[in-house]
Amino acid sequence: MLRFLQFINGSITSGGGGEESLYDIVLHHITDHPIEHGFIGEINKLFFDEKIFGIFDMRITKWVLMLWLTMALSLLVFIPLAMKIKKSSMGSKSRWVNFWEALIGFIHDEIVQPNFDHHYIKTAMPYFCGLFFFILFANFIGLVPGLATATGNLAVTGGLAILTFLGMVLIGTIKQGPLWIIKGIVPHGIPVFLFPLLWVIELIGLLIKPVVLTVRLFANMTAGHIVIIIFLYLSIMFHNYFVGIGSVTGSLMIYMLELLVSFIQAYIFASLSAMYIGASMHAH
C-alpha cells in the first residue's frame, strides 16, 4: 500500500524535485527514532549506548517519551482521583470524579464482569483498568499535534499483547494445573482421534491471539494517522487553496473519527484481553 503510494507520489512530484516524498513524510511521522540531541540525547549516550543482551536497544526514543507521558498523565489523573473517591464515600458531586467513575464502571460492566467469575472481578479490575486507560491515553496523546501515537507501533502493541499472552498462560497454568496446555485448551466431548488435530489448531489459535491483538491496535492507530497526514499533504502537493479547504476538512473529519477509534480500540484491546484471560480460567 505504502509502496503504491510512494509510486504515485513519485510520479506526481517528480517534476517539482528537491522535496521530500510523501512516503518519507508519512514514515517520518509514524515511525520511531532515538533522540540524539539535548538532555535525553546525553542520557542515551551515557547509559544506553550498548545494546542489552545484544538485542535490546534501550536508547530513549520519541515513542518511549510518549509512553512516559502516558504514564505521567495516568498518574496525574488517577492518584488524586483515588483520594477524592476514597474521601467522599457517599459519591462525589464533582463532574470530573463522576466522569472517571462512569468510565471505570464501564470497564467493570462491559469488560471485566462478562468474562470473570464474581469473586475474581475485584482482582481483575486493576489490571484491565490500567490496560484500558494506558491504551486510551496513549491513543489520545497521539492525536495531539506534535506528539506521537505510542500505540501506533508494533513493538508497543506487541509488548501489551505479550502481557495478555503471559496472563493467559500463567492464569491457565495456575488455575487448571500445568497440564492445562494439553487438556485445557481443547473443548471437551470430542472424539479421541480428533484430539491431536484440535490440540494443534487450538495451540496455533492461542499463539495467534496476541498477534491479532498486536496487529489490530497497531493497524487501527496507524491507518488513521496516515490518512490524516495524507489529507494534509494533498494541499502541499497541489499548491492550491481550494484543495487546502478540502484537505483540511477531510483531515478534520478523519481526526474526529480517530477520536472515536481511539476509544473503541482501547475498549477492544482490553475487552479481548479480558475474554482471553477469563477463558483460560476454566476448561472449555
Binding site: F56, D57, L67, W68, G130, L154, A155, G158
Partner: peptide, 20 residues
Amino acid sequence: LLKTDPGLFLWTIITFLVLL
C-alpha cells in the same frame, strides 16, 4: 512502517508494569 524495535518492546513492558 512495521519496524519492531526490541528496545521499545522492553520499554513498553517496563513502563506499563511500573505504571500498573
